[in-house]
Design a protein around this nucleic acid. Sequence first.
DNA 1: AAGGGGCCCTGATTGC
DNA 2: TGCAATCAGGGCCCCT
Length: 289
Amino acid sequence: MPELPEVEVVRRGLARWVPGRGVESVEVLHPRAVRRHLPGAADFAARIAGRTLDEPRRRGKYLWLPFGEAAVLSHLGMSGQLLVGEAAAAPQRHLRVRFAFADGGVDLRFVDQRTFGHLMVCPLVPDPHGGEAGVPDVIAHLAADPFEPVFDDEAFVRAIRRRRTGVKRALLDQSLISGVGNIYADEALWRAGLHGERPTERLTAAQARLLLRSAREVMAEALEVGGTSFDSLYVNVNGESGYFVRSLNAYGRRDEPCGRCGTAILREVFMNRSSYSCPHCQPRPRHAR
DNA sequence: AAGGGGCCCTGATTGC
DNA sequence: TGCAATCAGGGCCCCT
């Protein structure tokens, strides 16, 4: 499941293959892949054809390829992939959108099994968080991610403590902090020794800082080894898996011993998804949220 | 108005 | 054996 580190791996891959190349044609093979591009698939393709793509950018889990004052914005959802490969290669089973370039070189493909991901063209607007580069209008309401220079640590600490919800819910809220998904939320909470259902309003400033530091550290370590791949659904632009699954301490480790204390990792269903935690290191609060 | 729940989607796995 | 139920979950939308 692509979260910040996985999307950054993809961005770095695209940065090697895409900038400065002119798009010759865009083929939309499944309308759902561009469902958020309201003028439709034909308009999506027409807006990109003939344009030259710029350096890829990212905020949280969103990735975009700017061209002038607009950009192709992507979210990979659960199973989306952006792949670079020989233009003559056979189409993948779940190929949704294909970009061909005027130079006849490697093409760019959006492949997505579960179709939670999408692509759209949207205008760039000034960054509300003060970054120098513009950001796609439809994601201007999202928080910056903790790898960005414009991310304000103390503003995050104040904001999360003002919330009235559980810590894990807050971590997954992209308007508070971008880029954290279910896997890295569980890993950050494990590192910080906090249960995901702890009320945010009872976090001390020190605990909120520790949680932020934990999230940053775990995502930086994942990025170094190419991200987390459970199966072939997350790969880099060349189709290769990342290795961070070997370093997970909580996520997916039901009944396995905690790396700190040896207690069996607990799996619980929370927010209609799995949450993994150590019942000893991350005790459930008396007043859970 | 912030918070929380339902829903979308397909393939692998599990259960009867 | 074969079919059906279950599970995976990010983010939009809607309701309170």
